[in-house]
Nucleic acid binder design. Structure first.
Lengths: 392, 392
DNA sequence: TAGGCTTATTTTTAGACTCGAACTAAGCTT
DNA sequence: AAGCTTAGTTCGAGTCTAAAAATAAGCCTA
């Protein structure tokens, strides 16, 4: 039942959408190039661009001389048509960033948060949003918010690690006076979206972005669209294995997550791991030459390889992107062995079609990815003229 | 980059498609009901049905009297517009079935095959297709073929269990004189498709169909569309566990597949399992009251639950359909315990949104599912009039 | 410096399509 | 038989894309 009736208006929306997307992703293009890139006739490309220019969504971006012929006028998305905001709600703090439509960072604000107080957090988000736009909220096309948990109907958040249970975040932020459209999504997915648009996922359409931090998550892209689920970390990989904080046993996260890795290290050592915080502890583990540390790292690589192999077998991706702070730290030193471990566990055929790469964006990508949500909505709706704001 | 330009012609195709789909899935409908069901205006519903009636794709199906008003004329897909054929290529034999567009079985042919001889099999498929239509090949809209392996570009088959490596099956069948359009797909997926259209998956749009036979596979439906991959059986569930026939260790299949289950039973018993074939051996295991058998079954339920939980966590389906001959045999006796084991391993939240059910179709569903492939193509393309055959 | 040439856009025109409104068809009730 | 009710069709308006023709804007050459 996904098929939906189409009316003549949908045509224009759809074609506006492909045209806008072509411009967003493939930089400034002339009308002619646009026509070629989208498959639209030059006539249609022309009328649509005229419309979009008129609405202020597009802007001219110089022209390219030719050797004997009318020069092409380049067009691009007008970066100043509106602003988008990305919010990264982490386990210990929030980060709010303001972007223009070229995704250039214009302002950033960070605050620490205490766990378990959604009301305070939503108020903090609202005030930070106001700070970052300096009061000019009417120019904001939307606010994307990445949260460390699952999101229902785009508005209700369940985030165990910060003690949120069925928090109606969208309503709360609106109640705090933010009227711009809100887009709430799992942080792993916003980070995955960022890698897809601007990082290691560019150009591919079947990708798994594996995110390894304190916990373990994954974002799955199939046929170019980001998939909803993705609780890869709580996939059983050792039946009846180590207890996991989720209540089950033998989850991948309990072995390959930073916390699980350090727990195992601690047990093997018989004492605490050096390092002031989790991140430096992981570094010290990875950099240690002691046999115990080497063994723990080798084991981790093995478990991670098996976990990645599961993704390869299930999703048959053309690319696997290894990200997350712990994933990047481990991958920077051990990528070859991770690849080998994956190969040992995966089916030959899907494995032969995939490539494992390191993520290109740091964990800050959560906010960028969150900010892409309103942009994606804009591109997808073809910036429906019926919703377009009048630009004075 | 998935977005594609739209022309005014696509409109009609799309609307023909939704209208045809409504009729296919929701039985005979009047034009008025069609208009309501599809969202099309009565005018458009009328002109499109007129067109389709004219082309022979639709037929009238009586009328419904009303209390004081013009009676509604019911329309349905003309079952005799064309025939479709479903082929089930199994590990020991093939089955070829002929259907009309109401998916009524009109003829069936079965043959045994020897493994490792693609040429003979393709010739056998071709001759069986000819047999089943009694020479009337020009009436056939398409032949769907379910194979026990992976399919590339819809034509090249890799099927380890019958010794096929990169077999260009489509070309071979065409070379054997079958000119009808061919649709080749993994058998687990065709079976899943059958459950979606006619079985336990009806009406849902996020479903995982778990198929447990000698081996283990899954078909994943997201947002109403069947996903490509799905090598669930070779997902690591016991790190460094039992060797699997795929070459890796600890795969789910080595524990929850019929073969793996019987292997473990055999080891525990210390001697062979009673039963003339795999299927009867499984029955005897499931029906036995011996402590060893009970223990093996309980273990299997546990592994299977963990495997299903992985699917729940990863895909967040609204429904899990347990199928395959061994899955049905096990599920018929142990569904409650399978549900409990799944619950023990899955995250509470996605688990709360899912329901586990038994498949409603037997393993014969492979052929039916295969036959749905050309039907799906017909519905999806809206039976493009430019491709429609002229019906004398 | 004026034509000619080349390439890029815009205008014009034709054709396809959906929708709303008016209209016709086909039954039942009184 | 007139009126009522519901089903389906026809017509006109409006939207949209594509192909073709026209125009714009440069370079090159004589």
């Amino acid at each position: 039942m996904p098929a939906k009736r189409a009316t003549v208006r949908h045509l224009r929306r759809q074609n506006r959408s492909v045209l806008l997307s072509a411009l967003f992703f493939d930089g400034p293009l002339s009308r002619q190039e646009l026509s070629a890139a989208t498959g639209l006739s030059p006539a249609t490309a022309s009328t649509i661009t005229a419309e979009l220019l008129d609405e202020g969504l597009l802007a001219e971006a110089g022209s390219v001389e030719s050797d004997g012929g009318r020069p092409r006028v380049l067009l691009r998305i007008n970066p100043d048509f509106g602003r988008v905001i990305g919010v990264d709600v982490g386990e210990t703090g929030i980060k709010v960033e303001l972007f223009d439509l070229a995704m250039t960072t214009l302002a950033t604000v960070e605050h620490a948060i205490a766990p378990g107080d959604p009301l305070a957090v939503s108020a903090l988000i609202a005030s930070s949003v106001r700070d970052v736009v300096d009061g000019a909220l009417d120019n904001v096309l939307g606010v994307g918010i990445g949260v460390p948990g699952t999101v229902e109907q785009g508005s209700v958040v369940h985030a165990q690690t910060i003690g949120w249970d069925a928090v109606p975040l969208a309503d709360m932020i609106r109640a705090a006076g933010i009227t711009a459209p809100l887009f709430i999504e799992n942080g792993a997915k916003t980070q995955g979206q960022a890698e897809m648009w601007f990082g290691a996922g560019r150009g591919a359409s079947h990708v798994v972005i594996a995110l390894i931090g304190s916990g373990v998550g994954a974002a799955v892209v199939t046929d170019g669209t980001l998939y909803r689920g993705g609780e890869w970390g709580h996939t059983t990989i050792v039946y009846n294995g180590r207890p996991c904080r989720c209540g089950s046993r033998g989850c991948l996260e309990a072995y390959a997550g930073a916390e699980g890795m350090l727990d195992r290290y601690r047990e093997a050592l018989g004492h605490d791991v050096p390092g002031s915080d989790e991140q430096s502890s992981v570094d010290s583990l990875l950099d240690s030459d002691s046999p115990i540390a080497l063994e723990i790292v080798a084991e981790t690589v093995g478990y991670l390889g098996a976990g990645i192999a599961n993704l390869v077998n299930l999703f048959n991706p053309e690319r696997i992107v290894l990200g997350g702070w712990a994933g990047l730290a481990l991958g920077a030193r051990e990528l070859d062995r991770i690849v080998a471990a994956t190969s040992a566990h995966a089916l030959r055929h899907p494995y032969g079609q995939t490539r494992i790469e390191l993520g290109q964006l740091g964990p800050d990508a959560v906010a960028v990815g969150a900010a892409t949500l309103p942009v994606a909505a804009l591109l997808e709706a073809g910036a429906d003229p019926r919703q377009a704001r009048v630009v004075a």
